[in-house]
Design a binder for these strands. Structure first.
Length: 153
DNA sequence: GCCAACGTTGGC
DNA sequence: GCCAACGTTGGC
């Protein structure tokens, strides 16, 4: 089973939104990067673990645990001219962008970015690498276990 | 608001 | 196919 870290701006979709969502599941929309899309399309499997990360906010960090719940499908926001994620170059015949369902496992304490940077066992995490901008990154087994240990199970 | 770093675009 | 210009990300 693979593991992933998925960034979300809490203004758009926070861990509390996931807690409150029907079936505590949300379609992950708005991915507009090919590498991240390819992770969804080619590598993610239902049951994979997800670290739900809050970005671009006052206190960035891991805010909860989730899992991939399937539901890979074209992201409808790419067809909506009113959406900030509208992509005029995408067509319904050949959609460019995909979404996948993410289901809550549990909300956790906030494992802050500062704490992550201070944790030697997390130093390899891709989200911490200089210049990283990918909104979806793979998480190794060791990194996953280390995060769970920090969160106190 | 700043700015480093990166991905994408488009002219050639 | 190169690469400069541009737009975006995201922490601070």
């Amino acid at each position: 089973m693979a593991h992933w870290l998925m960034k979300s701006e809490p203004d758009e979709a926070s861990i509390d939104d996931l807690v409150a969502a029907p079936h505590q599941t949300l379609p992950w929309t708005g991915v507009r990067n090919y590498q991240a899309r390819n992770f969804m399309r080619d590598a993610m499997r239902p049951g994979d673990g997800v670290l739900f990360y809050h970005s671009s906010c006052a206190e960035p960090g891991i805010a909860g645990l989730a899992r991939i719940a399937g539901g890979l499908a074209p992201d409808p926001t790419q067809f909506d001219p009113a959406s900030p994620y509208f992509d005029p170059k995408s067509t319904r015949e050949a959609p460019r962008w995909l979404q996948i369902d993410v289901a809550l496992e549990r909300k956790t304490r906030l494992l802050t970015l500062a704490e992550m940077r201070d944790a030697p066992e997390l130093a390899t995490m891709r989200v911490l690498q200089r210049g990283n901008r990918l909104s979806i990154t793979p998480v190794s087994d060791d990194e996953w276990r280390a995060v769970l240990r920090r969160l106190g199970r």
